[in-house]
Simulated scan of single mutants.
Amino acid sequence: MPTKIEKDQATGVDTTGHEWDGVRELNNPLPRWWLYVFYATVVFSIGYMVIFPSVPYGDGYLKGTADYSARVEVEKDLAEAKAAQGDILARVAESDLETIRGDQNLLAFSIAGGGAAFAENCAACHGTGATGGPGYPNLQDDDWLWGGDLNAIQTTIRHGIRWEQNEDTRYSEMPPFGDGILDRAQIAATTQYVLSLANLDHDAATAAAGQTVYAEQCAACHKADGSGDPTLGAPALNDAVWLYAGNADEIATQIARPRHGVMPAWDNRLSPVTIKMLTVYVHELGGGQ
C-alpha cells in the first residue's frame, strides 16, 4: 500500500504516511535540546578521536595527539604496586615458613598472595574451594597423603607427585593386586576388611578372612590399623575420606587395578616467594598440622 502523506486536521502537522489500525504517525521534528545534545556528542567524538587512541587500521591505530596508552598506565600501576610490596616480599623471601606463620603481617600477606596463586594454578584440579574431587585431594580436611605440616606441603608443591620431569618428585605406586597377586576371593575379603576399618557396612565373616590378607599384603604401607603412612604417600583407610573409592565395588577395583594421580612440580614454574605464600595458604585452609 503506497504511503500517503497528508496534513493532520487536528494538529495541522503533516503525517509520515504510516498508519496502524487507523492511527496516523505525525511527522513532528525532534526537540531542539535533543538535536543539540546529538551535535555535541558528534563534536566530542571527533575531538576524542583526535586526542586519544581510537580508530584501528591495518596493523595499527590512530594514536592520538595526547600520546596516551591504557596499557602503559596499567604497567605503571603494576610497577608501583610491586614496588610498594617490595619490602614485605623481601621479608617473606628471607623468612622461614614458621616465622611467616608466626608474624601476623607476613601471614596475612602470604595468605592473600597464596590465595591468588592457588586460584590461578591449583583450583583447576583442587577446586576453587580446595575441596577436591574424585582423584583430587581435599585440602580442607586433615587427611594428607604426604603429610600436612608446612615443610611437607612445600615439598609436595615444589616437586609434585609422580612428576617424572622432577628427580625429587614424590613417588609411590600401589601394585595391581588383581594381576596374579591376589585372586578374586582374596580381593573380596580384603575389601570387606577395609570397609570394617572405616566402620562402614561390611560382612564380618568375610572381613575376618580379609584381615589375614591385609596383614600380609597391605599393612606394610597402610599400617596394621589402616592409619596410612605419609612417608610413603599411603592413604589412611580407617576414616571416611576416600580419594578414589568409598564403597565395596570401588575399593575392590582400586585393589585390583589401582589408579595413581599425578601433580606437576611447581619448582620451575613459580618463584620461591610464591611457593612459600602458596604453602602457607594451603596450610591455613584448615587441615594443616
Score class of each variant (00 low, 15 high):
Thr231Ile: 13
Gly178Phe: 04
Val72Ile: 13
Leu145Phe: 13
Thr253Cys: 08
Glu80His: 00
Ile88Val: 15
Phe44Met: 13
Ile181Cys: 02
Gln154Met: 10
Tyr36Asn: 14
Lys276Leu: 09
Ala119Trp: 08
Pro29Val: 13
Cys125Leu: 06
Leu243Ser: 02
Cys122Thr: 03
Ile187Met: 03
Gly133Ala: 13
Val23Leu: 11
Ile157Leu: 12
Ile187Lys: 06
Ala84Thr: 03
Gly226Arg: 00
Met49Arg: 10
Thr155Met: 08
Thr15Arg: 03
Asn166Thr: 13
Thr155Phe: 12
Val72Asp: 05
Thr155Tyr: 14
Ala234Lys: 02
Ala224Asn: 11
Asn199Glu: 14
Leu139Gly: 05
Ala188Ser: 14
Glu284Arg: 13
Asn247Gly: 11
Glu19Trp: 00
Gly17Lys: 01
Asn166Pro: 05
Leu62Val: 13
Val13Asp: 08
Glu250Phe: 10
Val213Trp: 06
Asp21Ile: 05
Cys122Asn: 06
Asn138His: 03
Pro176Cys: 07
Val50Glu: 04
Gln254His: 13
Tyr68Asp: 06
Val55Thr: 15
Gly288Arg: 04
Leu107Ile: 07
Ala83Val: 01
Ile181Thr: 12
Leu182Arg: 04
Gly58Gln: 06
Leu278Ser: 06
Glu6Trp: 03
Ile275Thr: 04
Asn268His: 10
Leu150Thr: 01
Met263Arg: 00
Ala220Met: 07
Pro258Thr: 08
Arg170Trp: 02
Leu285Lys: 04
Val194His: 01
Leu182Asn: 00
Asn166Ser: 13
Ala84Ile: 08
His260Thr: 15
Pro134Lys: 10
Lys76Leu: 11
Arg269Met: 11
Gly135Cys: 08
Gly102Glu: 09
Ala108Cys: 07
Val50Ile: 14
Ser271Met: 06
Ile161Tyr: 05
Met174Lys: 04
Tyr193Ser: 00
Ala220His: 06
Asp183Glu: 05
Gly114Ala: 02
Pro264Cys: 08
Asp8Arg: 02
Pro2Glu: 14
Thr128Tyr: 09
Arg184His: 10
Pro29Gly: 10
Gly115Val: 03
Met174Leu: 05
Ile255Asp: 02
Val262Gln: 15
Asp143Phe: 14
Leu107Thr: 07
